[in-house]
Computed example of a mutant assay.
Amino acid sequence: MAHAVTRLPDAQLAPMLAAYEAAVRERRRHSFIAVAVVLVCIALAAWMGEVKPGVLFANAGRLTTYFASIVPTLRWDSLGADLAEWYWNLDHWLKLLLDTILIAYLGTLIGSIGAFFLCFLACANLVRSPLIRLAARRYLEFCRTVPELVFALLFVVAFGLGPMPGVLALAIHTMGALGKLFAEVVENIDMKPVEGAIAAGASWPKMVRFAVVPQVTSNFASYGLLRFEINVREASIMGFVGAGGIGQDLVEAIRKFYYSDVSAILLLIIAAVMIIDLVTEQIRHRLLGVGGGQ
Results as ranks from 00 to 15, higher is better:
Ala4Glu: 14
Leu8Asn: 07
Pro9Thr: 14
Ala11Pro: 00
Ala11Gly: 07
Pro15Val: 03
Leu17His: 07
Tyr20Ser: 13
Arg27Pro: 06
Arg28Pro: 09
Arg28Leu: 14
Val37His: 01
Val37Thr: 08
Cys41Met: 14
Pro53Ile: 08
Phe57Val: 09
Asn59Lys: 12
Val71Gln: 04
Leu79Ser: 09
Ala81Thr: 13
Ala81Tyr: 14
Asp82Glu: 04
Glu85Trp: 12
Asn89Gly: 07
Asp91Arg: 10
Leu97Asp: 05
Leu102Val: 14
Thr108His: 00
Ile110Cys: 05
Ile113Gly: 03
Phe116Arg: 01
Phe116Gln: 05
Cys119Glu: 05
Arg128Asp: 13
Arg128Gln: 15
Tyr139Ile: 15
Tyr139Val: 14
Phe142Leu: 15
Cys143Ser: 08
Glu148Trp: 02
Ala152Trp: 04
Leu153Lys: 01
Phe159Ile: 07
Gly160Phe: 00
Leu161Thr: 01
Met164Arg: 11
Gly166Cys: 02
Val167Met: 01
Ala171Asn: 00
Ile172Gln: 05
Gly176Cys: 07
Leu178Pro: 00
Gly179Leu: 04
Ala183Ser: 04
Ala183Phe: 00
Ile198Thr: 13
Ser203Asp: 03
Ser203Pro: 03
Pro205Tyr: 03
Gln215Trp: 05
Ser218Trp: 07
Glu229Leu: 11
Glu229Pro: 04
Val232Ala: 07
Glu234Pro: 06
Ala235Tyr: 03
Met238Leu: 13
Phe240Pro: 02
Phe240Arg: 02
Phe240Tyr: 03
Val241Asp: 03
Asp249Arg: 11
Glu252Leu: 15
Leu266Tyr: 00
Ala272Asn: 02
Ile283Phe: 06
Arg284Leu: 08
Val290Trp: 10
